[in-house]
Design a protein around this nucleic acid. Structure first.
Lengths: 161, 161, 161, 161
DNA sequence: TTTT
DNA sequence: TTTT
């Protein structure tokens, strides 16, 4: 009776952080930026570009692939779902963080961008969606303090799209 | 260079709140629940259902349609994008809230579910209507030659979902 | 490097046809109608509603659930992928049919629509995407001759969406 | 009451064909390939890669952007809808062709992949620009406080995808 | 007919 | 706070 789906294409803001748990279970976290192009309204008002940052979480085997192949700057496609978890801040206040749990990741860019293409021919898709373990709930709040600026990316700013 | 898309099907948690601004611009807010079915792991662990709550925001003409036709309990499809905004709490701490800005909403279920359904034939989409040129219409009158009647569908009535 | 995704919400045009193979593998086929609302152009031209028919194919365990719970008239959400297969018509000409291979189906409508809700609490999602078996390629062309009319559905036609 | 959505990421198979009509209306057509990775089944059977070809149709202003920036080999993201049209072949038989009508296209890959990239900063979307009210902008200047630079990303260069 |  |  329900659908909860997120589809993103953007650039990874910093190298993913990977943590391993006792049972060799892994989780990767990284910020992803999507940028909406600005425009000029009919009344002449300039609306600037707007960058949105998404907290991406990846579990299991897919996290290990992320560890190997996703880095700061990588352009990726993500399919996943939204999840908001709560945690207590240092003042004892309840805080909420919304994350994108990815179950499919595609690295974008052409072959010529990826000279060292000798890794696994992996579609990076999870066979079994991870349900929320209790451990999951207890985790620290993450990836809320990125220190990247995507605005300066003159590398991509003169693309027409 | 970017995609930021959310697709949800769920149930509205409470009647939408609508606010109007000076220029007759409207915004609607409501919570939407999506529920993931629980399951039993291979090791026998019971994973319960998990409900996710999404903060939905709707601007402009679509907000007015929401005001008329969406209410607590309504099952809807939403297409939109993620946006995280910050605000300062009473202790001066920066807080973040992630919302889903809807630009397409579809009411689901049968007519009998939607009592107030006498309004405009509105696709509830914030877009230019698509490219139905006359030529297009002529090429494809009714593409595959169906001649049934899909009305009075009391036949959904023994479905388990 | 690739994404091939289809998302549909529509009404099933006729009862699904289910076929079973030797290894208890099942496949279900049915037509699904999506209807785009007509509108009036700025120049006053009337653009009528337009119904699109999709050939939906469902494999494996999901096909069995379809057999039990999907019927003519059912409103469903489908997530799947596009696949075009070829076959030879009686004159020896190569023909092509594009189908939507569903890997997630959600039945829509409210509880009150589904009084007999005693079936499996099934999210109707395939764990393993079906790849194309040779048998698959040899199948007969299907679901191209529906005999339903969705246009007469006065049951849904006065909905505002 | 309906949703008809297609999301593709793939490679353009040949240079788009553009046709112009009397009223300066344009349409672009091109094939797009998506490739599903092969795999080995649990019983040891080798399933090869499988490439799917999609007929993409683009109308209006977006067609002109396609003319300028999309060519054979380009990796693109497409959002659109399915449409099946019929035509009569030379033997008078009715034939059907399913096409993807694109209403949003994003060029993927880095600038260096897109030599002719000196055109308009165009999001290639057939929609009204979204609801960036000034208020919106003021509420969320740069939401999460990043201060990195994501440019000169030569760091994609050893990815296997 | 693309791409990896 | 919804729904099944």
């Amino acid at each position: 009776m329900s659908v909860n789906k997120v589809i993103l294409i953007g650039n990874v803001g910093k190298d993913p952080e990977i943590r391993y748990f006792e049972n060799d279970r892994a989780v990767a976290n990284f910020p992803l930026a999507t940028t909406e192009r600005g425009f000029t309204t009919s009344s002449g008002q300039q609306i600037p570009d707007r960058t949105e940052w998404h907290n991406v979480v990846v579990w299991g085997g897919l996290a290990k692939v992320v560890e190997s192949y996703v880095k700061k700057g990588t352009q990726i496609f993500i399919e996943g779902k939204l999840r908001t978890r709560s945690w207590d801040d240092k003042d004892g206040n309840k805080r909420y963080t919304t994350e994108v749990y990815a179950d499919n990741i595609q690295l974008l860019g052409r072959k010529s961008d990826n000279p060292g293409s000798n890794g696994p021919s992996n579609t990076m898709e999870q066979q079994m969606p991870n349900h929320n373990s209790p451990m999951n709930q207890n985790q620290m709040p993450n990836t809320m303090g990125h220190d990247d600026i995507l605005g300066e990316s003159s590398d991509q700013d003169d693309l027409p799209f």
